[in-house]
């Protein structure tokens, strides 16, 4: 995947897309976890959420480059 994509003549870093996708996936996973009541296995949910997002975003970014 290219590092940048063009949107009406302006180049944006693809990392923005990865960021948005990672945020969306985190949101979905978080919702699913709440539905399945998995949060009782988590000590500090916001920290967990942030870490989950960092993992997804980092992995996506590293795969991209």
């Amino acid at each position: 995947m290219p590092r940048e994509f063009a949107l009406s003549g302006i180049l944006f870093p693809s990392l923005i897309v990865v960021f948005v996708i990672a945020a969306a996936v985190t949101w979905i996973i978080d919702g699913l976890m709440a539905r399945a009541n998995l949060h009782r296995y988590v000590w500090h949910p916001p920290l967990f959420r942030l870490a989950l997002f960092a993992c997804l975003f980092g992995a996506g970014g590293l795969l991209l480059y």
Binding site: F48, A51, C55, L62
Partner: peptide, 28 residues
Amino acid sequence: AIKALRILMTLAICVIAVMVGTALWDHY
């Protein structure tokens, strides 16, 4: 056991997050 699991799981994913995040930051 559940309490330990909770803390362990959170910490584990945090450590991974820090590692992946640092790698990405370095890379970028």
